[in-house]
Amino acid sequence: MDAWTCLHDLFQDNEHSRAVTLEHEFSSTHMRDFPNVSAYCQRLKILADQLKNVGTPVSNSRLVLQLVAGLTDAYSGVGMLIRRSKPLPPFYQARSMLTLEEADFAKKVANEIDSAMFSSASDDATSYPDTKPQNHGDGNKHNTKNKNRNNNGHKVKYDGSFERHKARLVGDGAGQQVGIDCGDTFSPVVKPVTIRSMLSLSLSKAWPIH
């Protein structure tokens, strides 16, 4: 009888220790640690079920409130909507609201990327008209000069100042002479619209930015 009592007490101690560990993990679960809403919600539900198995059930209200508390700033709007609902919605309904919000974020990011690509294509088409390249016999191909280019091939305004510091040159590089075939040009590798699109995508996915 004493042996069974010892085993029972040992089992109770292990169960209590497990409950404490699960409680801590449940309370410290945040969306920023997961790739998407579904993975975040699934982890919370698994922890709630495990707490129930060790004799510490989690009510729907507490589960929903913990779900809202762990959201990232991008979901603060829908989180406030859920928190102000009276009564609080069931867990599955709150999860559906977050999933729809995530889908809206993805759609907005896709539209921004499409707009940025269209804007970039339009800008390139305006800056560099469709002209056939001419071969100057030195192995290099240059765009045909238009009436707004100076002697060095740079685009200029009517007052003679540079229109923009940008150039297009395709050649072998071996037979070029600075000042004749090419000049010093500076062009950014990434456009601001691309940076904004990537930041929006990172925000919607709650990705860390370094």
Score class of each variant (00 low, 15 high):
6 C>W: 13
2 D>S: 14
31 M>H: 05
99 T>Q: 12
207 W>K: 09
201 L>G: 07
162 F>T: 12
205 K>A: 07
46 I>S: 10
88 L>F: 02
138 D>I: 00
109 V>S: 06
162 F>W: 08
183 G>K: 02
143 N>R: 15
74 A>Y: 07
164 R>W: 03
196 R>Q: 14
145 K>T: 06
20 V>Q: 12
104 D>V: 12
165 H>P: 02
138 D>F: 05
86 K>V: 14
5 T>I: 10
165 H>G: 03
38 S>V: 13
11 F>L: 15
183 G>I: 03
99 T>W: 04
122 S>E: 15
180 I>V: 15
134 Q>A: 12
140 N>Y: 07
34 F>M: 10
14 N>I: 05
100 L>V: 14
130 D>Y: 07
22 L>C: 05
34 F>E: 06
34 F>R: 01
119 S>E: 15
183 G>S: 09
98 L>H: 01
99 T>D: 04
2 D>E: 14
125 A>E: 14
105 F>R: 08
209 I>P: 04
189 V>N: 01
149 R>M: 13
56 T>H: 14
33 D>V: 03
161 S>Q: 04
188 P>Y: 05
18 R>S: 10
105 F>D: 15
174 A>K: 15
142 H>Q: 11
30 H>Y: 11
46 I>V: 14
166 K>Y: 09
175 G>Y: 14
116 A>T: 11
197 S>H: 00
193 V>H: 13
122 S>I: 03
207 W>S: 10
57 P>T: 00
54 V>L: 04
209 I>C: 05
20 V>A: 08
94 A>H: 02
158 Y>S: 14
3 A>V: 08
147 K>H: 11
105 F>Q: 12
134 Q>R: 12
173 G>Q: 02
98 L>G: 00
150 N>Q: 04
2 D>V: 15
191 K>M: 13
166 K>M: 09
197 S>Y: 02
41 C>R: 04
171 G>L: 01
51 L>R: 09
5 T>S: 09
40 Y>P: 03
112 E>F: 06
70 G>S: 01
179 G>W: 02
97 M>V: 01
18 R>W: 05
138 D>L: 00
100 L>S: 11
36 N>W: 06
181 D>C: 02
192 P>W: 06
51 L>V: 00
30 H>A: 10
100 L>D: 02
115 S>F: 04
12 Q>A: 08
66 Q>D: 03
199 L>H: 08
202 S>P: 01
156 V>Q: 07
71 L>Q: 02
182 C>Q: 03
72 T>C: 10
98 L>D: 03
1 M>I: 04
17 S>F: 13
32 R>S: 12
105 F>H: 15
115 S>A: 15
8 H>T: 11
132 K>P: 04
1 M>H: 15
27 S>T: 10
55 G>T: 01
74 A>W: 03
181 D>K: 02
27 S>C: 10
60 N>C: 07
27 S>A: 13
171 G>M: 06
44 L>Q: 05
76 S>D: 07
54 V>Y: 04
84 R>T: 14
169 L>M: 11
31 M>N: 04
45 K>W: 09
48 A>E: 04
165 H>C: 07
74 A>H: 09
102 E>K: 02
123 D>I: 09
66 Q>F: 00
